[in-house]
């Protein structure tokens, strides 16, 4: 049911009036008790953010600085509270990340600041805040958005992490390439039935789930790109670290399998139109390690080729892979000590950290590029399911 008596849209000014004593009810119904998987599924993306902003506009319109401050504090604290409570739920975190960003974009778009008004319609310019400059609150909201982003990454890692080694390294999809296991090495997963074992498909399905949730929540495309880049980084780093610690993963055929898996991940990026988000580049150390498993490792020319090819790997990583390299077929040979020395000598002058393992806790700095909305505030209607009948459209 529409909350208010229908009026012509042109009569609305895109504000929502509320009584000071209803503020707690507002944040309870709209933030604390809203279930992203229930009611929120059918909302227009960012609706909670628009509703909160329209309430804020009214507090600004009546020139009540205490009401503005109080609403912003309640909104921010409520978002923090729900994330404390349900911070391990990807959907909840994604939902509030996109709404926090939308709220922040609204604060910019309607700030009255020229730099944020370039894409506004004349009507949107009329809807700019009239009494208060909320630049400092925008900074606080941006800090909050960074916290939520980091929580989203942690949440995503917790889900993805257990799939990576199994899906990227252990599970073999290319039949017949590595029928022979390295001598003396037992395949770690062979005793477990395939059920419960993650495959590359499990990883790709999970990437699809993350992606479609973020799209459904109206997450800014630029933000999705940053999340995907971070996802690929973690996949690449965890895979490479395990390869560097496991002799049974350092064979020609594993190199083949890894390259195939990487190509499938690239295909996923292409399919989602995310080829330019920097995600593929984060896999470069893994790609080079896989190539290193496959190239010839015998002559001085081979050493030269390896040194120029492996610019995303540290000397320690290159040497480790060469040391671990284990022939599985008759046509393969161990890497000679002399060859490894040649590589070490060639790379002596490289300026790099001596680190062997990649930092799996690294999070790339996030930015929230301004993304104004074309939505006209005066057309927004509040679904009855949100239990906000105490708000009045103005």
């Amino acid at each position: 049911h529409p909350v208010n008596i229908p009026r012509r849209e042109k009569d609305f000014q895109g504000m929502l009036e509320y009584k000071k004593e209803d503020e707690l009810k507002l944040v309870k119904n709209l933030i604390l008790e809203l279930k992203p998987r229930g009611v929120a599924v059918n909302l227009i993306p960012g609706l909670p953010a628009y509703i909160l902003f329209m309430c804020l506009r009214h507090a600004d319109y009546v020139n009540d600085d205490q009401k503005v401050r109080s609403l912003l504090t309640s909104v921010i604290n409520s978002i923090k509270k729900i994330l404390k409570k349900r911070g391990d739920d990807f959907e909840t975190v994604s939902f509030w990340l996109s709404n926090t960003c939308r709220f922040l974009h609204c604060l910019k778009q309607y700030s009255g600041d020229d730099q944020f008004m370039k894409h506004n319609t004349p009507k949107q310019n009329d809807h700019c805040l009239s009494n208060f400059d909320l630049a400092e609150y925008r900074q606080v909201l941006s800090d909050l958005a960074i916290q939520i982003y980091q929580q989203l990454i942690k949440c995503m890692e917790n889900i993805l992490q257990p799939m990576i080694v199994s899906g990227m390294l252990e599970h073999e999809t290319i039949q017949g390439v590595s029928g022979v296991k390295p001598t003396g090495l037992r395949k770690r997963t062979s005793s477990i039935a395939d059920e419960g074992t993650y495959t590359l498909d499990s990883i790709i399905r999970q990437l699809n789930t993350f992606h479609s949730i973020m799209c459904q929540h109206g997450t800014d495309p630029e933000l999705i790109k940053q999340v995907v880049k971070q996802q690929f980084y973690i996949i690449g780093a965890v895979t490479l670290n395990n390869l560097l610690l496991r002799k049974d993963m350092c064979s020609w055929s594993k190199g083949m399998q890894i390259r195939y898996n990487v190509s499938q991940l690239e295909e996923w990026l292409r399919d989602k139109n995310l080829m330019t988000c920097g995600a593929k580049e984060t896999l470069e150390p893994l790609i080079q390690a896989a190539q290193l498993l496959q190239v010839k490792k015998k002559t001085d020319e081979d050493a030269e080729a390896i040194c120029s090819m492996c610019n995303a790997l540290s000397t320690a990583q290159i040497v480790k892979v060469l040391n671990l390299y284990t022939p599985v077929n008759a046509f393969e040979e161990r890497v000679s000590v002399l060859f490894i020395r040649t590589i070490q000598t060639r790379l002596r002058d490289r300026k790099e950290s001596p680190q062997l393992l990649m930092d799996t806790k690294l999070i790339y700095p996030v930015t929230f590029p301004f993304n104004p909305s074309s939505l006209a505030l005066e057309t927004i209607q509040i679904p009855g399911s949100l239990n906000l009948a105490f708000l009045t459209r103005v």
Binding site: L24, T73, I76, K80, N131, F132, V140
Partner: peptide, 30 residues
């Protein structure tokens, strides 16, 4: 309304300071 009116800057507390202004005291006290 004139297009470039002067708005009053509202000083904001930090995210941490805001947390101390607990709006949910009633339900969080034991």
């Amino acid at each position: 309304r004139p297009p470039s009116r002067i708005r009053v800057l509202l000083k904001a507390p930090t995210l941490e300071e805001m947390e101390e202004m607990n709006i949910f005291e009633d339900e969080e006290s034991p």
